[in-house]
Amino acid sequence: NKASVVANQLIPINTALTLIMMKAEVVTPMGIPAEEIPKLVGMQVNRAVPLGTTLMPDKVKNYE
């Protein structure tokens, strides 16, 4: 099972992601793969992401 990116804290809307905000966890359904964490640093979320929520591609601005 592959790990996904999960919010390590509440991430407010329009916040630029940092390493400390994210952790890798095996979750269902799968979100953004954990190996993409370095790519996500500096990207902004387009909505608030509660603690423990899986980061889905549609929650990150300009994620492809």
Results as ranks from 00 to 15, higher is better:
residue 61 K to E: 09
residue 29 P to Y: 03
residue 51 L to D: 11
residue 24 A to S: 12
residue 60 V to L: 12
residue 18 T to F: 06
residue 28 T to S: 14
residue 30 M to F: 12
residue 42 G to H: 02
residue 6 V to D: 03
residue 2 K to R: 14
residue 62 N to L: 07
residue 36 E to K: 12
residue 12 P to K: 08
residue 63 Y to A: 03
residue 23 K to I: 10
residue 14 N to K: 06
residue 59 K to W: 15
residue 46 N to P: 03
residue 47 R to P: 06
residue 29 P to K: 05
residue 29 P to N: 04
residue 18 T to W: 04
residue 46 N to H: 08
residue 32 I to G: 01
residue 22 M to G: 07
residue 12 P to R: 08
residue 34 A to V: 06
residue 63 Y to K: 04
residue 59 K to I: 15
residue 31 G to W: 05
residue 62 N to D: 13
residue 52 G to C: 06
residue 35 E to D: 12
residue 12 P to M: 07
residue 21 M to Y: 05
residue 6 V to S: 04
residue 61 K to I: 15
residue 64 E to F: 12
residue 43 M to G: 03
residue 26 V to K: 09
residue 53 T to C: 15
residue 27 V to R: 15
residue 54 T to G: 02
residue 55 L to A: 01
residue 9 Q to H: 05
residue 39 K to A: 11
residue 18 T to Y: 02
residue 9 Q to P: 02
residue 28 T to P: 03
residue 15 T to V: 10
residue 41 V to D: 02
residue 7 A to D: 01
residue 29 P to H: 05
residue 32 I to L: 02
residue 13 I to T: 10
residue 3 A to M: 11
residue 32 I to D: 02
residue 21 M to L: 03
residue 14 N to A: 06
residue 17 L to T: 00
residue 23 K to H: 07
residue 38 P to T: 10
residue 26 V to C: 13
residue 49 V to W: 04
residue 43 M to F: 10
residue 9 Q to F: 08
residue 18 T to P: 01
residue 38 P to Y: 10
residue 54 T to S: 03
residue 50 P to F: 07
residue 33 P to M: 06
residue 28 T to E: 14
residue 40 L to V: 02
residue 43 M to H: 09
residue 24 A to C: 08
residue 29 P to M: 03
residue 30 M to G: 09
residue 9 Q to A: 09
residue 17 L to W: 00
residue 10 L to W: 13
residue 9 Q to V: 14
residue 43 M to K: 11
residue 6 V to F: 01
residue 46 N to K: 11
residue 44 Q to L: 11
residue 26 V to W: 12
residue 9 Q to Y: 03
residue 9 Q to K: 09
residue 20 I to T: 12
residue 34 A to C: 09
residue 54 T to W: 00
residue 2 K to S: 13
residue 42 G to F: 07
residue 25 E to T: 08
residue 7 A to V: 06
residue 15 T to E: 07
residue 10 L to A: 13
residue 35 E to R: 11
residue 41 V to N: 04
residue 11 I to D: 03
residue 13 I to G: 07
residue 21 M to E: 08
residue 38 P to H: 11
residue 3 A to Y: 09
residue 19 L to E: 10
residue 6 V to Y: 00
residue 39 K to Q: 12
residue 27 V to I: 04
residue 4 S to T: 05
residue 38 P to I: 09
residue 43 M to I: 06
residue 50 P to M: 09
residue 39 K to M: 12
residue 35 E to V: 13
residue 26 V to E: 08
residue 36 E to A: 10
residue 61 K to C: 11
residue 28 T to V: 12
residue 3 A to F: 09
residue 25 E to P: 00
residue 8 N to L: 08
residue 47 R to D: 15
residue 34 A to I: 05
residue 26 V to D: 07
residue 53 T to F: 08
residue 35 E to Y: 13
residue 6 V to K: 02
residue 59 K to H: 15
residue 60 V to K: 02
residue 33 P to R: 08
residue 42 G to Q: 00
residue 12 P to A: 07
residue 49 V to D: 06
residue 19 L to Q: 08
residue 52 G to E: 04
residue 35 E to P: 07
residue 58 D to F: 10
residue 34 A to Y: 04
residue 62 N to Q: 08
residue 57 P to N: 00
residue 49 V to M: 09
residue 11 I to A: 01
residue 25 E to D: 11
residue 8 N to R: 14
residue 13 I to Y: 08
residue 24 A to M: 06
residue 20 I to F: 12
residue 54 T to K: 01
residue 34 A to H: 04
residue 59 K to S: 15
